[in-house]
Design a protein around this nucleic acid. Sequence first.
DNA 1: TTAATACATAAGCACATTATTATCTATCAA
DNA 2: TTGATAGATAATAATGTGCTTATGTATTAA
Lengths: 116, 116
Amino acid sequence: MRTKSIASIEKAAQILKLLGDKTRLSMVKLIENNECCVCEFVDIYQASQPSISQHLRKLRDAELVKERRKGQWVFYSLNKESQYYEFVLGILESVPSQDERLKELEKQGLRISCCE
Amino acid sequence: MRTKSIASIEKAAQILKLLGDKTRLSMVKLIENNECCVCEFVDIYQASQPSISQHLRKLRDAELVKERRKGQWVFYSLNKESQYYEFVLGILESVPSQDERLKELEKQGLRISCCE
DNA sequence: TTAATACATAAGCACATTATTATCTATCAA
DNA sequence: TTGATAGATAATAATGTGCTTATGTATTAA
Protein backbone atom coordinates (compact mmCIF):
# COMPACT_ATOMS: atom_id res chain seq x y z
CA MET A 1 0.00 0.00 0.00
CA ARG A 2 1.43 3.38 -0.99
CA THR A 3 0.39 5.62 1.86
CA LYS A 4 1.95 7.74 4.55
CA SER A 5 -0.65 6.53 7.03
CA ILE A 6 0.26 4.20 9.84
CA ALA A 7 -2.42 1.79 11.03
CA SER A 8 -1.73 1.87 14.75
CA ILE A 9 -0.58 4.55 17.12
CA GLU A 10 1.80 2.04 18.69
CA LYS A 11 3.56 1.35 15.42
CA ALA A 12 3.82 5.06 14.63
CA ALA A 13 5.33 5.70 18.06
CA GLN A 14 7.77 2.84 17.58
CA ILE A 15 9.05 4.26 14.31
CA LEU A 16 9.26 7.79 15.70
CA LYS A 17 11.24 6.48 18.64
CA LEU A 18 13.66 4.75 16.29
CA LEU A 19 14.13 8.00 14.38
CA GLY A 20 14.32 9.94 17.64
CA ASP A 21 18.03 9.33 18.00
CA LYS A 22 20.32 11.77 16.24
CA THR A 23 22.74 9.13 15.01
CA ARG A 24 19.99 6.92 13.60
CA LEU A 25 18.08 9.85 12.16
CA SER A 26 21.21 11.14 10.45
CA MET A 27 22.04 7.68 9.10
CA VAL A 28 18.55 7.22 7.72
CA LYS A 29 18.66 10.66 6.11
CA LEU A 30 22.06 9.86 4.63
CA ILE A 31 20.91 6.63 3.02
CA GLU A 32 17.82 8.30 1.64
CA ASN A 33 19.94 9.01 -1.43
CA ASN A 34 23.17 7.12 -0.80
CA GLU A 35 24.12 3.56 -0.15
CA CYS A 36 26.53 3.47 2.76
CA CYS A 37 28.58 0.76 4.39
CA VAL A 38 29.18 0.31 8.08
CA CYS A 39 32.78 1.52 8.05
CA GLU A 40 31.65 4.81 6.51
CA PHE A 41 29.17 5.37 9.30
CA VAL A 42 31.94 4.62 11.78
CA ASP A 43 34.11 7.31 10.20
CA ILE A 44 31.31 9.84 9.85
CA TYR A 45 29.96 9.61 13.37
CA GLN A 46 33.27 8.92 15.08
CA ALA A 47 31.54 6.03 16.75
CA SER A 48 32.64 2.51 17.51
CA GLN A 49 31.80 -0.20 15.01
CA PRO A 50 29.58 -2.14 17.44
CA SER A 51 27.67 1.00 18.29
CA ILE A 52 26.93 1.63 14.62
CA SER A 53 26.04 -2.01 14.04
CA GLN A 54 23.59 -1.91 16.92
CA HIS A 55 21.87 1.16 15.56
CA LEU A 56 21.62 -0.48 12.17
CA ARG A 57 20.22 -3.62 13.69
CA LYS A 58 17.34 -1.70 15.22
CA LEU A 59 16.57 -0.06 11.92
CA ARG A 60 16.86 -3.42 10.18
CA ASP A 61 14.62 -5.18 12.72
CA ALA A 62 11.95 -2.58 11.99
CA GLU A 63 12.56 -3.17 8.28
CA LEU A 64 13.22 0.51 7.69
CA VAL A 65 16.57 -0.24 6.06
CA LYS A 66 17.93 -3.10 4.04
CA GLU A 67 21.40 -4.50 3.62
CA ARG A 68 23.32 -5.67 0.63
CA ARG A 69 26.53 -7.58 1.00
CA LYS A 70 29.24 -6.79 -1.50
CA GLY A 71 32.40 -8.68 -0.80
CA GLN A 72 33.64 -7.76 2.62
CA TRP A 73 31.33 -4.83 2.90
CA VAL A 74 27.71 -4.53 3.85
CA PHE A 75 25.88 -1.61 2.30
CA TYR A 76 22.78 -0.16 3.81
CA SER A 77 19.98 1.72 2.12
CA LEU A 78 16.42 2.78 2.84
CA ASN A 79 14.00 -0.09 2.39
CA LYS A 80 11.67 1.17 -0.32
CA GLU A 81 9.53 -1.94 0.06
CA SER A 82 8.71 -1.16 3.66
CA GLN A 83 5.08 -0.36 4.34
CA TYR A 84 6.42 2.56 6.34
CA TYR A 85 8.63 3.93 3.61
CA GLU A 86 6.30 6.80 2.72
CA PHE A 87 5.92 7.72 6.35
CA VAL A 88 9.67 7.81 6.84
CA LEU A 89 10.16 9.80 3.63
CA GLY A 90 7.62 12.34 4.82
CA ILE A 91 9.61 12.88 7.99
CA LEU A 92 12.94 13.01 6.19
CA GLU A 93 11.58 15.83 4.04
CA SER A 94 11.83 18.11 7.05
CA VAL A 95 15.24 16.91 8.13
CA PRO A 96 18.36 18.74 6.92
CA SER A 97 20.48 16.93 4.35
CA GLN A 98 23.43 15.01 5.74
CA ASP A 99 25.25 14.75 2.41
CA GLU A 100 27.92 17.17 3.61
CA ARG A 101 29.15 14.45 5.90
CA LEU A 102 29.73 12.15 2.96
CA LYS A 103 31.50 14.89 1.04
CA GLU A 104 33.83 15.31 4.00
CA LEU A 105 34.61 11.62 3.82
CA GLU A 106 35.36 11.86 0.13
CA LYS A 107 37.68 14.79 0.73
CA GLN A 108 39.60 12.65 3.15
CA GLY A 109 39.75 9.88 0.56
CA LEU A 110 37.94 7.56 2.94
CA ARG A 111 34.96 6.99 0.73
CA ILE A 112 36.77 5.36 -2.18
CA SER A 113 38.79 3.07 0.00
CA CYS A 114 35.63 1.46 1.14
CA CYS A 115 33.22 1.41 -1.75
CA GLU A 116 33.97 -0.79 -4.76
CA MET B 1 8.61 30.91 9.80
CA ARG B 2 5.97 28.68 8.27
CA THR B 3 7.90 25.60 7.22
CA LYS B 4 8.05 21.94 7.96
CA SER B 5 11.84 22.03 7.88
CA ILE B 6 13.88 21.69 11.01
CA ALA B 7 17.21 23.48 11.14
CA SER B 8 19.26 20.89 12.97
CA ILE B 9 19.29 17.13 12.99
CA GLU B 10 19.56 17.22 16.78
CA LYS B 11 16.38 19.24 17.17
CA ALA B 12 14.52 17.00 14.74
CA ALA B 13 15.64 13.93 16.68
CA GLN B 14 14.58 15.54 19.94
CA ILE B 15 11.05 16.17 18.69
CA LEU B 16 10.78 12.70 17.17
CA LYS B 17 11.87 11.21 20.47
CA LEU B 18 9.18 13.18 22.28
CA LEU B 19 6.58 11.87 19.84
CA GLY B 20 8.07 8.40 20.00
CA ASP B 21 6.05 7.45 23.03
CA LYS B 22 2.59 6.03 22.40
CA THR B 23 0.95 7.96 25.23
CA ARG B 24 2.47 11.28 24.21
CA LEU B 25 1.87 10.67 20.52
CA SER B 26 -1.75 9.79 21.17
CA MET B 27 -2.21 12.85 23.38
CA VAL B 28 -0.70 15.16 20.79
CA LYS B 29 -2.89 13.66 18.09
CA LEU B 30 -5.93 14.06 20.31
CA ILE B 31 -5.31 17.74 20.96
CA GLU B 32 -4.67 18.40 17.30
CA ASN B 33 -8.42 19.09 17.10
CA ASN B 34 -9.59 19.00 20.71
CA GLU B 35 -8.69 20.86 23.84
CA CYS B 36 -8.30 18.34 26.64
CA CYS B 37 -7.72 18.61 30.33
CA VAL B 38 -5.46 16.47 32.44
CA CYS B 39 -8.22 14.46 34.09
CA GLU B 40 -9.49 13.41 30.67
CA PHE B 41 -6.07 12.08 29.73
CA VAL B 42 -5.99 10.21 33.01
CA ASP B 43 -9.31 8.54 32.20
CA ILE B 44 -8.44 7.85 28.57
CA TYR B 45 -5.05 6.26 29.16
CA GLN B 46 -5.85 4.64 32.48
CA ALA B 47 -2.70 6.24 33.78
CA SER B 48 -1.87 7.95 37.03
CA GLN B 49 -2.26 11.71 37.20
CA PRO B 50 1.45 12.36 37.86
CA SER B 51 2.39 10.17 34.92
CA ILE B 52 0.17 12.22 32.60
CA SER B 53 1.41 15.49 34.08
CA GLN B 54 4.99 14.46 33.46
CA HIS B 55 4.29 13.59 29.84
CA LEU B 56 2.60 16.94 29.40
CA ARG B 57 5.51 18.71 31.02
CA LYS B 58 7.91 17.31 28.46
CA LEU B 59 5.68 18.42 25.64
CA ARG B 60 5.29 21.82 27.28
CA ASP B 61 9.03 22.21 27.85
CA ALA B 62 9.54 21.63 24.14
CA GLU B 63 6.78 24.16 23.48
CA LEU B 64 4.85 21.68 21.40
CA VAL B 65 1.71 22.15 23.50
CA LYS B 66 0.26 25.02 25.47
CA GLU B 67 -1.95 25.16 28.52
CA ARG B 68 -4.95 27.26 29.44
CA ARG B 69 -6.31 27.32 32.93
CA LYS B 70 -10.07 27.42 33.27
CA GLY B 71 -11.19 27.30 36.85
CA GLN B 72 -9.93 24.12 38.42
CA TRP B 73 -8.99 22.63 35.13
CA VAL B 74 -6.00 23.02 32.87
CA PHE B 75 -6.69 22.48 29.21
CA TYR B 76 -3.99 21.50 26.79
CA SER B 77 -3.84 22.10 23.07
CA LEU B 78 -1.29 22.04 20.27
CA ASN B 79 0.87 25.14 20.27
CA LYS B 80 0.22 26.64 16.85
CA GLU B 81 2.83 29.31 17.50
CA SER B 82 5.61 26.78 17.84
CA GLN B 83 8.25 26.93 15.14
CA TYR B 84 7.86 23.16 14.94
CA TYR B 85 4.11 23.19 14.56
CA GLU B 86 4.17 22.42 10.83
CA PHE B 87 6.63 19.61 11.36
CA VAL B 88 4.45 18.07 14.04
CA LEU B 89 1.32 18.49 11.91
CA GLY B 90 3.05 16.72 9.04
CA ILE B 91 3.73 13.74 11.27
CA LEU B 92 0.25 13.73 12.77
CA GLU B 93 -1.17 13.48 9.25
CA SER B 94 0.02 9.88 9.15
CA VAL B 95 -1.13 8.99 12.63
CA PRO B 96 -4.57 7.44 13.12
CA SER B 97 -7.20 9.67 14.70
CA GLN B 98 -7.61 9.24 18.44
CA ASP B 99 -11.03 10.89 18.56
CA GLU B 100 -12.69 7.56 19.29
CA ARG B 101 -11.13 7.69 22.71
CA LEU B 102 -12.85 10.98 23.42
CA LYS B 103 -16.16 9.62 22.15
CA GLU B 104 -15.80 6.73 24.58
CA LEU B 105 -15.33 9.23 27.38
CA GLU B 106 -18.45 11.10 26.33
CA LYS B 107 -20.44 7.89 26.26
CA GLN B 108 -19.40 7.30 29.84
CA GLY B 109 -20.46 10.82 30.72
CA LEU B 110 -16.94 11.59 31.85
CA ARG B 111 -16.31 14.34 29.37
CA ILE B 112 -19.04 16.69 30.47
CA SER B 113 -18.21 16.39 34.13
CA CYS B 114 -14.86 17.85 33.45
CA CYS B 115 -15.22 20.39 30.72
CA GLU B 116 -17.14 23.59 31.49
C1' DT C 1 45.83 -22.29 4.93
C1' DT C 2 46.66 -18.11 7.33
C1' DA C 3 46.28 -13.34 8.47
C1' DA C 4 43.68 -9.26 7.91
C1' DT C 5 39.47 -6.69 7.27
C1' DA C 6 34.45 -5.87 7.76
C1' DC C 7 30.76 -6.69 10.35
C1' DA C 8 27.60 -8.93 13.92
C1' DT C 9 26.53 -10.13 18.41
C1' DA C 10 26.67 -10.98 23.46
C1' DA C 11 27.59 -9.33 28.12
C1' DG C 12 28.07 -5.76 31.27
C1' DC C 13 27.87 -1.05 32.76
C1' DA C 14 26.34 3.88 32.88
C1' DC C 15 22.85 6.80 32.12
C1' DA C 16 18.18 8.11 30.73
C1' DT C 17 13.35 7.43 30.90
C1' DT C 18 8.99 6.22 32.97
C1' DA C 19 6.02 5.14 36.64
C1' DT C 20 4.81 5.28 41.54
C1' DT C 21 4.24 7.43 45.98
C1' DA C 22 3.99 11.38 48.66
C1' DT C 23 3.30 16.05 49.05
C1' DC C 24 2.23 20.78 47.66
C1' DT C 25 -0.54 24.60 45.45
C1' DA C 26 -4.72 26.50 43.36
C1' DT C 27 -9.52 26.70 42.70
C1' DC C 28 -14.21 25.90 43.94
C1' DA C 29 -18.26 24.63 46.61
C1' DA C 30 -20.30 24.07 51.11
C1' DT D 1 -12.97 28.91 56.52
C1' DT D 2 -12.98 24.11 55.41
C1' DG D 3 -13.06 20.17 52.61
C1' DA D 4 -12.84 18.39 48.05
C1' DT D 5 -11.08 18.37 43.41
C1' DA D 6 -7.52 19.33 39.72
C1' DG D 7 -3.08 19.52 38.82
C1' DA D 8 2.20 20.09 39.53
C1' DT D 9 6.31 18.52 41.35
C1' DA D 10 9.94 15.95 44.01
C1' DA D 11 11.98 11.62 45.35
C1' DT D 12 12.56 7.12 44.37
C1' DA D 13 12.23 2.65 42.12
C1' DA D 14 11.90 -0.07 37.88
C1' DT D 15 12.92 -0.38 33.32
C1' DG D 16 15.06 0.80 28.94
C1' DT D 17 18.75 2.49 25.99
C1' DG D 18 23.24 3.05 24.26
C1' DC D 19 27.83 2.51 24.93
C1' DT D 20 32.16 -0.37 25.62
C1' DT D 21 34.69 -4.61 25.65
C1' DA D 22 35.24 -9.11 24.10
C1' DT D 23 34.49 -12.42 20.82
C1' DG D 24 32.47 -14.75 16.75
C1' DT D 25 31.65 -15.19 11.56
C1' DA D 26 32.35 -14.15 6.64
C1' DT D 27 35.18 -12.62 3.05
C1' DT D 28 39.45 -11.54 0.87
C1' DA D 29 44.27 -11.38 -0.02
C1' DA D 30 48.79 -13.37 0.77
